[in-house]
Amino acid sequence: MRVRVQAEPFDFGAECGAFASGRADAGAVVSFAGIVRDDGGLARMELEHYPGMTERALQRIASEATRRWPLRDCLVIHRFGTMLPGETIMMVATAAPHRADAFAAAEFLMDYLKSRAPFWKKEFGADGAAWVAAKDADEKALGRWSED
């Protein structure tokens, strides 16, 4: 289980390749990448985070995924700082004996880190800058993982 928080770009393909290689213990690897999306006029995105809490929150979310599913490994990389449209913001990868667990754990990681890891996106375009608002749907998505 590894968590990385960094300003530098990373090579999604290389990370996935390294994560998946030599895994006789896991029949399934699932990966997801989040990309800076330009809905029209986006010049750049700035991602602010809370150093210290960010790493703790991501570790906690990854540990929880490992507790819930029989993962052989999981990887979370999340960038902060300035990013341009098309750049990779973050990725998760999961490895499990069977694909259902690998898919579910990857979705769980995404749902939780979207609204429980301290990152904030600000978009800069021709019309100025605006903080991205949290979506109700993202908060509601957590409900499906309730164990109650």
């Binding site: 989040g34 991602l47 985070h49 809370y50 809490m53 999340h78 913001i89 973050m90 995404m110 880190l113 979207k114 609204s115 429980r116 890891a117 301290p118 990152f119 904030w120 996106k121 903080w131 991205v132 608002a133 949290a134 908060e139």
Partner: peptide, 10 residues
């Protein structure tokens, strides 16, 4: 203590 808006990572 830290104050901030709802988080928008991912």
């Amino acid at each position: 203590v830290a104050f901030f808006p709802p988080m928008t990572g991912g």
